[in-house]
Structure formats: structure tokens, C-alpha cells
Design a binder for these strands. Structure first.
Length: 270
DNA sequence: CTAAGGACCTGTCGGC
DNA sequence: TGCCGACAGGTCCTTA
């Protein structure tokens, strides 16, 4: 599923189609996701309007004047817009029908995502302890270096820690470390000032580029308009184990860090 | 407090 | 062709 660029792509596609439209009906088709979808969502949203759709980390926030619906897409979740009466598909778990007839549907085979309701999203337990957004000035080299010095773990695990910075998932962690020429297993305390600076710049530029291309489609990510993401063609190391490095022609290696596939070039990265 | 591993669930792919 | 294990974009929770 979705890493930050895919969530942002989803938000941009969904927002103009759902904002300020009156909700006619809400259907909870499968309430058991990562956590149960609260029943109150089905009643509370009737005849209400979603005023804005925003994003914090990989959480999509659907704001109303009485509270916020939080949606996380987990690994395999998608949100799509459909015309009235269009047939349900396998793993469609939730939908919002607008008075206009359009339907926003949540589909998630693995059910790792969640749909929750909160009256104050800023105080919500899932959102209150998150680190800075990667594309804001708060995420800078001085900040990252201070986190590196304080951590007792490797640099890849550090940048994937949502308390340090949000939105850097496995694909982009691998890609950013390649761009910054840092081997993923390196102890964070050994990252230099210049490397922290290059890593921050790499994370920002790679995320921006991927958002521009509509995210990364590996198997099952499609934007709400049905289009896949085109960032896959730009991947340097992720999913390229045993293939040649585009930069030095050495073989891309694969190891496991934090139970996640980790790919790197031992010649380009140190 | 931190860090590491487990857990959640379904689908797909490669190997035999 | 069929079965079985390994693996997959996330991240909270439990344990040490």
C-alpha cells in the first residue's frame, strides 16, 4: 500500500469530489479492520458535510463541524469514487454515499487499515505523538542529526520511526539512503553532519518526485481515478536485489532490517 | 524510557 | 497443474 506519496495522491483526488457535499448514507460493510469501525460513524455523518480533507502522516482526515473521521489505508487500502449503484467488490468494507449519488469506497484486502472517529484529532492517541512532516522546514538536517546522536539504532530504522519523522516507509527509506550514499545498517550515531543534510534533502526530493508522479504502484495501488503511480520506474534499489546498480553496475544486495526488506549498493553506500 | 519482535490478514509468486 | 512456504507498501502493542 500506500506510502506517503500514495496517500497524498489519494487525498488530492478525493478532496474535490467529496468536500462540501452532503452525505446521504454511510454503510459499514465489514467493521473489523485493524480496529472496529465505530458504529456511530454511520449515524453521525448523515446529512453532514465533510468540509475539508487533509493529511497528517499517512492518516487521511475528513473534517466536519462536529468532529473528524480518521482513515488509514494500512498496507493495501484504497479509497475510490464510484457512480451511484455501482456494484460492490470483494474487500469493500466501508462506503459513504453522497446526496449527489457519488460513492466513496474503502477497499482493503488485508484489513490493516482503520476508520475511526474523533472529536479532537489533534489530541487523538494515534496523532498526538507524531514527528514532523518530512516536507516541512521542521524536518531539517540539524533536527535529524540530533535524533541520530540520541538513538541507539541503525539509520534506516531511525528514519522509519514515526516519532522521528512521519511518512518515510520502506520503499522511500531504501531509496533515500541510496541517494544519500549511506548504508542502511549503519549506526545512526555514526552519521555525519553532511550526511544528515544530504539524507534530509534526499528524503524531501524523492517524496516530492513520487508525489508528482502519482506514487509508486507495485501491485495494487491505484489512485481514486484508477490510474497507477509512475514512480516505480524511478526506483534505484527497492525491489532491485540481484540486479545491477544504475550508478556503478555492482550487484544490488538485499538484507533484512527490522523485519523489512532492505536493499542497497555496497559500492555506492557506506 | 528505548529497542526488538510479534501481531494483525489476504493475495501472489516461485519452487518443487 | 497443484500445493506450500515466503513475502508484501504499516505500525501499534507487548516484552525485555
Amino acid at each position: 500500500m500506500p506510502e506517503l506519496p500514495e496517500v497524498e495522491t489519494t487525498k488530492r483526488a478525493i478532496a474535490p469530489l467529496i468536500e462540501n457535499k452532503t452525505i446521504a448514507k454511510v454503510d459499514i460493510l465489514q467493521k473489523q479492520l485493524r480496529w472496529m469501525i465505530p458504529d456511530e460513524i454511520a449515524t453521525i455523518l448523515i446529512n453532514k458535510k465533510i468540509t475539508t480533507v487533509t493529511r497528517r502522516a499517512k492518516y487521511l482526515l475528513f473534517h466536519t463541524n462536529i468532529g473528524t473521521m480518521i482513515i488509514h489505508l494500512g498496507m493495501t487500502g484504497t479509497l475510490t469514487i464510484h457512480p451511484a449503484n455501482s456494484a460492490l467488490k470483494k474487500h469493500d468494507h466501508f462506503q459513504i454515499q453522497l446526496k449527489s449519488g457519488a460513492i466513496m469506497r474503502y477497499n482493503d484486502p488485508r484489513k490493516f487499515g482503520c476508520i475511526l472517529w474523533t472529536h479532537d484529532y489533534q489530541q487523538h492517541r494515534l496523532l498526538s505523538n507524531l514527528g514532523p512532516e518530512p516536507l516541512t522546514p521542521a524536518f531539517n538536517s540539524k533536527y535529524l542529526l540530533s535524533k541520530c546522536m540520541a538513538a541507539k539504532k541503525n539509520i534506516k530504522s531511525l528514519i522509519m520511526d514515526s516519532k522521528v519523522v512521519v511518512g518515510v516507509g520502506n520503499i522511500y527509506a531504501n531509496e533515500s539512503l541510496f541517494a544519500a550514499k549511506i548504508i542502511p545498517s549503519r549506526s545512526a550515531t555514526l552519521v555525519t553532519e553532511n550526511e544528515a543534510d544530504l539524507l534530509v534533502k534526499s528524503i524531501k526530493s524523492i517524496l516530492k518526485k513520487s508525489i508528482k508522479l502519482g506514487g509508486t504502484t507495485l501491485k495494487d495501488f491505484y489512485a481514486p481515478d484508477g490510474k497507477p503511480g509512475y514512480f516505480k520506474q524511478a526506483l534505484s534499489v527497492y525491489g532491485r536485489e540481484d540486479q545491477n546498480c544504475y550508478h556503478c553496475d555492482d550487484i544490488i544486495q538485499k538484507i533484512v532490517i527490522g523485519q523489512r526488506a532492505t536493499t542497497f549498493c555496497a559500492t555506492c553506500q557506506h
